[in-house]
């Protein structure tokens, strides 16, 4: 998972003992994260389906939407956490469901809760789904 897309370029630099330790901890955390993901009521395919339903596929392919998600997180680092994003997207509801997200997107458009990312105008909820997709993809990779 990477909240700053620009930092990826630094990852290939020299690997020391401390980096190894970080790697092991990261792998354990990623494993735990994947384990808990299975307990969540959404999957990556759900996110992609939701974005398609919003009409976001007109903007571009999954790679572009993930990049927009990363850009969103760069501007909102406090949301750079899947649990946090899931909570925000769930809103007042107990779980993250497609119907809730659709309502939230429609409300965003009405109330102009929008994000401008690389010139594209996204509903804030939509941008958060893109961000979640970015984090999920990062974890899967």
């Amino acid at each position: 998972m990477n909240c700053n897309p620009q930092s990826e370029a630094h990852a290939a630099a020299g690997i020391g003992r401390r980096d190894c330790l970080r790697g092991v901890i990261g792998a354990v955390l990623a494993g735990l994260s994947l384990h808990f993901d299975r307990l969540l009521p959404w999957q990556q395919s759900d996110l992609e389906h939701w974005l398609r339903s919003f009409g976001a596929h007109a903007i571009g392919d999954g790679a572009l939407l993930r990049r927009l998600g990363a850009l969103y997180l760069a501007g909102h680092p406090e949301e750079c956490d899947r649990a946090r994003l899931t909570h925000l997207l769930s809103g007042a509801h107990a779980a993250l469901r497609g119907s809730n997200v659709f309502e939230s997107v429609a409300r965003d458009w009405r109330e102009h809760e929008v994000e401008l990312l690389e010139g594209w105008l996204l509903a804030r909820t939509e941008a958060r789904v893109c961000a979640l997709l970015h984090l999920t993809q990062g974890a899967a990779a």
Binding site: G55, I59, V114, G119
Partner: peptide, 23 residues
């Protein structure tokens, strides 16, 4: 342009990429 883009998205007309000079 933001109003138009939001409304076009809401109405399913299309999605808008704003020109850089705007922002």
């Amino acid at each position: 342009t933001t109003h138009v883009a939001a409304d076009f998205a809401r109405l399913g007309i299309g999605r808008c990429k704003l020109e850089p000079w705007l922002f």
